[in-house]
Write a protein that binds this DNA or RNA. Sequence first.
RNA 1: GGGCGAGUAGCUCAAUUGGAUAGAGCACCGGCCUUCUAAGCCGGGGGUUACAGGUUCGAUCCCUGUCUCGCCUACCA
Length: 691
Amino acid sequence: MYLRQQKKLEERLRAVLRELYQIEVGNIVIDQPPEIRFGEYASPVAFELARKLRKAPRKIAEEIVAALGAIEGFAGFEVAGAGYINSRLDRGTAVQAIAGGSDIETFAEHLHSLVEHTSINPNKAAHVGHLRNAILGDTFVRLLRAAGQKVDVQNYIDNTGVQVADIVVGLMHLEAMSMTDVQKLMSRLAESGERIDYYCWDLYARVSQWYEADEMEKQARKQVRLDTLHEIERGGNEAAAIGELISTAVLRRHLETMLRLDIEYDFLPRESEILHLKFWDLAFEQLKAKGVLYFEAEGKNKGCWVMRRMSWLLEKINTTTTESGENISELESADYYDEASEVSIFSRPKSADEDAKVIIRSNGTVTYVGKDIAYHLWKFGLLGRDFGYRRFFTYPDHDCWISAESGEPDHPQFGGAQAIYNVIDSRQADPQANVIGALIGMGYTDQAAHYTHFSYEMVALTPRCAQELGYEVPEEDRGRPYIEVSGRKGFGVKADDLIDQLIAATQKEVDERHPELDQVTRREIAKEIAVGALRYFMLKYTRNSVIAFDFKDALSFEGETGPYIQYAVVRTRSIFRKGETTAERALAEVADIDPSPYLAGGEADEIWQVWLRAAKTSLLLDQCIGTAEPAYLARHAFQLAQDFSNFYRKHHILTEPDPARKKFLMATAAVTQRELIRSLGWLGIRAPEMM
RNA sequence: GGGCGAGUAGCUCAAUUGGAUAGAGCACCGGCCUUCUAAGCCGGGGGUUACAGGUUCGAUCCCUGUCUCGCCUACCA
């Protein structure tokens, strides 16, 4: 309702400006007045026109208001302050419309999108940083799906990288294990209920220390690491087999951890297949043919195949654009690859570009960015080769597939998406930008424009939290706001430990509050609250804010938290239970009455505030997708819960004597419940029956 | 050296992307359970938005400079 009326108002303003002043205003700014008593929409458009028209803004605003006439659903327009144009909705009509439903259809897009998130190296347990990634990604998937998009969820698995190699080194060299020993180890762990990912967490830290421990041996040990890495990449040997076994087991653990948070995946592309199916060879041919990649014959990169950096391109086209991906759409108009002459803007420079990015080293091996370019060509359906697929993990209503050299004949289609989102932390902005740069250089500007590096800042630990975990915090770090986690040092909070702690804390509360419920139900409620607390905690910060993790904050269930919002829903449920009706019925019954009398006067503003906020959920969905920022919706849900709590205290619903007013108050609780559950659902948070 | 991000209340963060009196949560102080669940509500104190200029009707937001912090910038992967 809110969004639809805003668009109507915008159009009318546009028409009025055309009539009165023969002016086209590109973007008509409409926001909300500082106080609800001023109306629902405010536009400062008169200020903007003041200079152009050489008139006082207030005068312009008066002329516009006079010319607006009547707009369906609006009660009136007025000039406020120095020249704001405030618009009031007809509250009675609006309430009926809000009770009727949402207006997602005003912006729904039927794109085929691909979201990649989680992507944890399968060599250790997931930690809080990975949780932020997965929760952000999963939430964004839910938002896109809510807006009508078809979304594939991918979790990229670097199963042949140096981190997996480190684990293999640990098993083969520190523990002197063979393949059969490793198999025995795994069944021993399984029997004793120990987690393979936790075992690897410690082993990874040990191996990282081992490399550095002995100055004399350092060189040799690093060589062991490199040799192991190459064996794993090549495949068909013991190191590769052990790597495969361990990484697959750890991967399975990651999927189980994420499932605790209701996070599911559709496809797991692995680096091993990107290597063995030779994706790179095809990408190399394309890059070479289009001149994006060229052989460097001199300078420090002599003997390598190199590519211009994105930063160079941005400077070249003289834009102020900096953040990777986000403003690529501005590049669309220009041509960076000329089809006719087959010349790319990236073509070989006259003198060596020392700053160029090396894609193929002088020893003939491909760098990470090179493989990533190939993979992203596949994502957009531009590579000309596909993975094999086989089933890997089963969810209640679908399967998760994994890449394979030769897979099952019948499988769903992946790749070939119209838009992609890569949930990757901000430290990888540069490599991401270079992949985008390669696409642009190859002439795939449209794809580059739909490539979003969904970047976010890391989760670090407060010094206090680090000390609680038993880590020695150096003197100079104690005053800092946060300390970066480190897998190599085994320094961090493991995801499953945190979830366990959260459940233990919520379980205690639920047991105390509801001794009458059976244990299974109490357990279920405790889990829902714990997950709600965790997911909300990770979502309430905007993406580019570093989260300084602290158990005190994360284990809080009061104030701006998930449980606060869940609690508001539980209160509405309680009202309908005691009132022996349902939210659906309460919303339907608002049609029987005229709510207008209850929406007028100062006292009514706080009730109207609930309806207005509830009406904005769709607007928030639109904004969250446009800005790739789920935090706005998290905040919206909190504010709606807050508005409701305020209303709830002041207006006692079930004892309301006026039957028509009672229906209206019931509908107020109902619309809150509907919008809170909807918003929470998109945030991946369930709304418990009781708490 | 270059690039990016950040600096807002004691602490952690917002601020609808240039709009009206910069808002929340936590912490602190005071009040509210015989009434739909107190994981709640109400009230209070708390601010030179790092600093200095500039742009304009209007700046936390844009521009220039300075300071502080973090990250990125390898033929490692």
